[in-house]
Amino acid sequence: MSFLPFAIAAWLFLVGLYGIVSADNLIRAILSLTVVQSATYLVLLGVGYSQGGQAPIFADIPQTSKAVDPVVQVLVLTDIVIEATVTALLLALAVQAHKRFGSLNPEDLRALQD
């Protein structure tokens, strides 16, 4: 089952994309984007995992223990921060869209179509 994490990542990515495309509500589209982004966490952590490795925290394991790659874990942390900021900005835009068009349905955002 060594492909399972990557298969789940691909599945999350596509399901998230479907959520964005089929969304009839901006909030739903934004949440779907976070699903897409969570696929990248799985890929990053999956790439860094080595069989039998422990967490790269040497507080209570010997310094010579086999541990997984901490570099990708830091990248995931960065990824999460970026996701939070992107989500905050998109939600703010959704609030303004609702104020302006009185609707959260992407179909109703006339200014984007004209």
Partner: peptide, 22 residues
């Protein structure tokens, strides 16, 4: 994704370097 090293079969370099000297 299929082209990646199998899950658990870590091929990177930096992780081991950091774990060694950190």
């Amino acid at each position: 994704l299929a082209g990646l090293p199998a899950f658990g079969d870590y091929k990177g370099v930096y992780g081991n370097v950091i774990n060694g000297i950190g």
